[in-house]
């Protein structure tokens, strides 16, 4: 039962991933692509949690910690560059 719910949740998150990817590929300005990048990173965190649940290894969650910290750094760097500040 719980497995089927996880399958459906991952499929829904995959559709969201495709929509954000469409915005990344098409986005008119650079800032649109940065927003899509941020969204793609958070959906990837959900994917990592699903992979850890499927494999049953708690050590995989450390990658999600690194992800949640470091996607932030890329977005900050781009925003400072766009603001003529870096």
């Amino acid at each position: 039962m719980a497995d089927i719910l996880i399958y459906i949740a991952t499929a829904v998150a995959g559709v969201a991933f495709l929509l954000a990817l469409y915005r990344f590929l098409k986005g008119p300005t650079a800032a649109d692509r940065v927003v899509a990048f941020d969204t793609l990173t958070l959906i990837s965190v959900v994917f990592i949690v699903v992979i850890a649940l499927g494999e049953g290894r708690g050590i995989y969650l450390d990658v999600a910690v690194i992800y949640a910290l470091l996607s932030f750094l890329g977005v900050i760097a781009v925003a400072r560059y766009l603001e003529r500040g870096l």
Binding site: F24, A30, I51, V63, Y67
Partner: peptide, 22 residues
């Protein structure tokens, strides 16, 4: 433009890391 290309290269690395986890 150049910032878009750099951001896309960063996205390739980031998704490659999920694939490494798989």
């Amino acid at each position: 433009s150049m910032p878009i290309a750099i951001l896309a290269a960063g996205l390739v690395s980031l998704l490659a890391s999920v694939l490494f986890l798989l």
